[in-house]
Simulated assay, not measured.
Amino acid sequence: MSSKTKPQTKSAKVIAQLSRTIGATLDEICKATNWQQHSARAFLTGLRKKGYALAREQRGDDGTAYRITQNPSDKEPKGAA
């Protein structure tokens, strides 16, 4: 790996976590980004506003997991038949 690679942003890390089959819990997002829970929740809200579809699922004793079910690029363009 080159030392000149661009560092992965926190947003990219969270989107990668949410794209997994099992998704990610708020605690996992907070640990990966060093954000507080209210910041992680605000990020999820921002993703929804950008057109991401998020599913909220119960993950046993781990609590609630969030998972991206649709990216904005997966949706049909507006005005399409």
Rank of each mutant, 00 (worst) to 15 (best):
L47K: 02
G79T: 06
S39Y: 10
A53D: 14
V14E: 05
G60I: 05
Y52P: 00
D27F: 08
Y52N: 02
L44V: 04
T69V: 14
P77I: 08
W35V: 02
A65S: 12
Y52T: 00
T69A: 05
A81D: 13
I22M: 10
D61P: 09
R59K: 10
H38V: 12
P77F: 10
K31M: 08
Q17I: 02
Q58N: 11
R59S: 11
A24P: 01
K6F: 09
Q17V: 00
A12N: 11
L26F: 07
L26W: 03
N34D: 13
R20I: 00
T64P: 02
P77Y: 08
P72I: 12
K75F: 06
T21F: 11
Q17C: 07
D61L: 14
T45V: 11
T9Q: 09
A42L: 14
S11I: 08
I29R: 00
L18I: 02
S39N: 11
R20P: 01
W35F: 15
G51R: 09
K10H: 12
T69H: 05
R48K: 15
T69Q: 12
K10V: 05
S19Y: 06
G63M: 05
Q17P: 02
H38W: 15
A81W: 13
L47A: 00
A55M: 02
Q17E: 07
L54N: 04
D62A: 15
T64K: 07
M1T: 09
